[in-house]
Write a protein that binds this DNA or RNA. Structure first.
Length: 586
RNA sequence: GCGCCCGUAGCUCAGUUGGACAGAGCAGCGGUUUCCUAAACCGCAGGCCGUGCGUUCGAAUCGCACCGGGCGCACCA
């Protein structure tokens, strides 16, 4: 049997289909809920009913009679036509051998080999610290990037921000106002300015290094100073959350201003070949732009969208955010990626569809090369995280500075982590755990679900968090190896692995590559999180019922060490993909 | 009003190409430790899978309608 047990079953059914000339039928093999239905089950007989004009039960009997049954203890037809497969223990043991042979290559995919992918996420304008609102997509984007890398893609992690926009101007004005206030020259604070304490901190920093020297400085100077300060902080925050050096959290920070400049260097122009002006010209040529009330509009309605949108404002002649968004995405296509993933919050639901509609029209209208099809862009929309404190939702506004930052969240959880031995490593272990908790909380849920993050629960009852359950499985294995002093150098006999718990564990390990594949293809990290939780459960179950270190039976001990070693490998692989960090001890 | 997402156990959520009596964690009740860390394990209890109609041999899963919640529908991003 091949690497994957399920695949082996599927291959045998496929062979049968080929023989009866039904190769087009999709082979479905599932793991039944109940053990008496076998290790795997197929409903293929129901699907074939229509084609073969026979009763499903008879078809199932025919299939069972014809396929290669060597890997199976038995194959049964049950009820109206379910085919249930019961694996021989040797077959299952063989799967374990494959995992041990592949080691940390196990679960690596090839679907992205030789291809380039780009993942855009966070993309917050640097007008303040990152908040819980950004946390979900930061973690999702990080894990999706890791999954794509695991699949063989050359991945560019990208952060786009509107440095040319009104919000950044307001930031500059806010800092300048605070700066003058510190100098004792109070000026009116911008009506929609940023009220956060951090604005004062930035202003004092300027005052400390330049004194009153910036009193006549331009808004742009203040903006640029603040932007640099805030970006440093953002990178530092993400480096905690992603567990990477700050300089590696993103590969590219894409500035909106690149889409305006007509005189960029050759290198810059290579990643921004399409300017706003160029995009506008294309839309005009395709009859998708028109003037009304002094503004320039995008004719979205002819593309099936609910309403037309302004691209260039009447009063200032500046583009709205929509035009550079379109240009940015046209540039992404031209940069030659095979896959582009946009990760947006639910508030982008409406707007990204305009961008995609425009790109499709440009592509169909011949403005973009045939091989740069917009369907290479996949958009992942996630719902909001509702933060609960004292059972009440926390209302957040960035402008009014009533938000909880990612750093505050991690720090709050960190304080409550209890450790078995708080030695010199205590601080680092606490940080590891807090980040694990935050990431796990997000990664266990599908992006589609509106989740509640109960801060009190995450803090006060941190030992009950699912992350502990999973980490504890890992440390139990670690502890076994420490205790036994074994290193598992040579190939051992696996024949003694025949109990229900042992076989169940191996079968679960066998699912790993498929789970990784599903998580990657569906851009759904939570598939993997849920899997890890289930695997940990089976390890605990096994651990409670069987001892690994059994000196009286060296062969059995070696086999069980091999088994838990394989669990350890898969957990390490999964942790790597999910960005979790396992403690050596708990 | 229009668009997208959600509604599954007391709570937080899985259940992704429709399959056999619906799952996990937490909370509740009752057990398990001379033995590799009990942050674990075992058992009990808990659900008309928002409601109704439809498609199907078969629906939590697909379609339609309705009810309830979130987000959006700016010449802000």
């Amino acid at each position: 049997m091949s690497v994957m047990l399920r695949k082996g079953v599927a291959e045998r059914l496929q062979k049968y289909l080929d023989e009866v000339g039904q190769s087009g039928i999709r082979v479905e093999v599932t793991v039944p809920d109940r053990p008496e239905y076998g290790d795997f089950s197929s409903t293929i007989a129901f699907v074939l009913k229509a084609q073969l004009q026979q009763a499903p039960r008879a078809i199932a009997e025919e299939i069972v009679a014809r396929i290669d049954k060597r890997p199976f203890e038995r194959v049964e037809v049950v009820g109206p036509g379910f085919i249930n497969f019961f694996l021989k223990p040797e077959t299952v043991q063989q799967a374990l051998r494959e995992i041990l042979a592949r080691e940390h290559e196990y679960g690596r995919l090839t679907l992205g080999e030789g291809k380039r992918a780009q993942v855009e996420f966070v993309s917050a304008n640097p007008t303040g610290p990152l908040t819980i609102g950004h946390c979900r997509q930061a973690v999702l984007g990080d894990v999706i990037s890791r999954l794509l890398e695991n699949a063989g893609y050359d991945v560019t992690r990208e952060y786009y921000y509107n440095d040319a926009g009104r919000q950044m101007k307001l930031l500059g004005e806010s800092v300048k106002a605070r700066y003058l206030e510190i100098l004792g020259q109070p000026t009116p604070f911008p009506e929609e300015g940023y009220h956060g304490e951090y604005i004062y901190e930035i202003a004092s920093k300027i005052q400390e290094s330049c004194g009153a020297g910036w009193a006549e400085a331009s808004i742009v100077q203040f903006k640029e100073f603040a932007e640099a300060e805030l970006f440093t902080e953002i990178k530092r925050t993400l480096s905690r959350l992603f567990r990477m050096p700050p300089e590696r959290v993103f590969d590219l920070y894409y500035n909106e201003s690149w889409l305006y400049a007509e005189s960029l260097s050759a290198i810059d122009r290579a990643i921004a070949p399409v300017t706003n002006a160029k995009l506008l010209q294309w839309l005009r040529e395709l009859g998708l732009a028109y003037e009304k009330d002094g503004a320039l509009w995008f004719k979205a309605t002819v593309l099936g969208r609910p309403q037309d949108r302004v691209l260039v404002k009447s009063q200032t002649g500046e583009p709205t955010y929509r035009l550079p968004d379109m240009a940015y995405h046209a540039n992404k296509l031209l940069r030659g990626f095979d896959l582009m993933v946009d990760i947006f919050g639910a508030d982008h639901q409406e707007t990204y569809q305009d961008v995609l509609a425009a790109l499709r029209a440009l592509w169909e209208g011949g403005k973009l090369p045939k091989e740069r099809a917009p369907d290479k862009i996949r958009v992942l929309i996630h719902q909001w995280v509702n933060l609960l404190r004292g059972g009440q939702p926390v209302k957040m506004s960035k402008r009014m500075a009533t938000f909880v930052t990612i750093d505050e969240l991690i720090d709050e959880i960190k304080q409550t982590v209890e450790l078995a031995d708080a030695d010199s490593q205590g601080e680092a272990l606490r940080e590891d755990f807090a980040v694990n908790v935050v990431r796990t909380f997000i990664l266990m849920r599908s992006a589609d679900s509106h989740v509640n993050f109960d801060l009190d629960l995450a803090k006060k009852q941190s030992k009950d968090n699912p992350v502990y359950y999973v980490m504890y499985a890992y440390t139990r294995i670690k502890s076994i190896f420490d205790k036994s002093g074994e290193t598992l150098e040579s190939v051992v006999s696996l024949e003694s692995l025949d109990t229900q718990e042992e076989l169940a564990l191996i079968k679960k390990l066998d699912e790993f590559p498929q789970v990784v594949r599903d998580a990657t293809e569906h851009l759904a990290p939570h598939f993997l999180s849920v899997y890890v939780h289930e695997l940990a459960g089976l390890l605990h179950d096994f651990y409670e019922k069987h001892r690994v270190i059994v000196e009286a039976n060296p062969e059995r001990m070696q086999a069980r060490l091999a088994l838990v070693r394989a669990v350890q490998i898969v957990l390490e692989r999964a942790f790597g993909l999910l960005g979790l960090k396992a403690p050596a001890r708990m």
